[in-house]
Design a protein around this nucleic acid. Sequence first.
DNA 1: TAGATTGTTAATCGATTAACAATC
DNA 2: TAGATTGTTAATCGATTAACAATC
Lengths: 206, 206
Amino acid sequence: MKPNKISEAVVRRLPIYLRYLTHLQQMHVHTVSSQQIGKTLDINPAQIRKDLNAFGDFGKKGIGYDVGYLIEKIKQILKINQEIRVALVGVGHLGHAICNHNAYKRDNMRIVAAFDNDPKKQGETVAGLTIQPLDEMNQTIAEKQIRLAIITVPATAAQHVADLLIEAGIEGILNFAPVTIRTTQDVTIHHTDVTSSLQSLAFYLN
Amino acid sequence: MKPNKISEAVVRRLPIYLRYLTHLQQMHVHTVSSQQIGKTLDINPAQIRKDLNAFGDFGKKGIGYDVGYLIEKIKQILKINQEIRVALVGVGHLGHAICNHNAYKRDNMRIVAAFDNDPKKQGETVAGLTIQPLDEMNQTIAEKQIRLAIITVPATAAQHVADLLIEAGIEGILNFAPVTIRTTQDVTIHHTDVTSSLQSLAFYLN
DNA sequence: TAGATTGTTAATCGATTAACAATC
DNA sequence: TAGATTGTTAATCGATTAACAATC
């Protein structure tokens, strides 16, 4: 693996490659070219070759990429060749949906704890998990070796919840609350918000 | 409004600005500087001024931006100063959550139709909407003047559903299915996928 | 060998940021 | 006036793409 610094754009494309390669594997396709990947995913083939080559020489000139080998390599790069345990905070409609979706899928990102500050929800289960109060976060995150967190609380609570999570040692956060979360710590925070996404779509209306 | 071409990066930031400005308005703040916005949203102030200035001279030198005025301007730019009607296809856990969330919010992006190809779901209601079969899509989209669509069906069905929506005259699609949707038509397609987002987060684990 | 495709450089393109005159 | 802040240019930085030698 070449240790040049990797841009976020590349990191965001890797899961997209992985998803398509996994699909190819299920179709029993053993080899694929950057051109074929590019055509399917609407990405420039040179871009794909450059992205992959930043981590090593995975392809064969004149042949292409071995699907199974490339899947393994990308999983290594993304560090998802091991189970990554995830906590979810805020079991509203969206949190509920994400928990169920995750339980149904079989991949290495596993939600193993769910928290909510509503006493009425605490003790109930979602996707097989008992909903816990926020003050159990520290202990549970340590005990279960949870490294990532998903925030699906209202905007007003999001920063506070993030602070608690970071304090508890979480290394990355995926935030669905419509607010920008900030931190001085070395924690990666990705934002995603349905409303903002829809609003930016509206810009392109004729 | 200056007619230079606007990059997608800018369009994605506009809703973020709008969100914060709306917050300021609720706090009865009347004026704000690019520096203040930048500090809160973790965005370079020069970036913010440049983004906004691409659409007109909205600020006052030495003073800053009038919050209410800027909100109106951004809404105009995003074309959300009118109600935009949205269809949702695929009423699973996620589709359900998005419908409920949208019904609860009071903004101008309104989900007014929900479709699912499962006969058991058809006729049931979600967030006050009767779930309809896919073959009613064409008529409903025309009648209700629906312009955007949210896809929350499984990956295997997503491209087909997108083709139907585009055929029905939809102008933009927000796709939550873990697959890249392609089209030859002039339709904007944005992708968002929880699994991919989590996977890219994992890259930054120590 | 001929055709295909990678790895990689160089060129291009675009986005971000610094800096400052204008001006409130 | 002095301080603050925009609008905007120029500089910088980074990402994408074209092109092609290497080679399977």
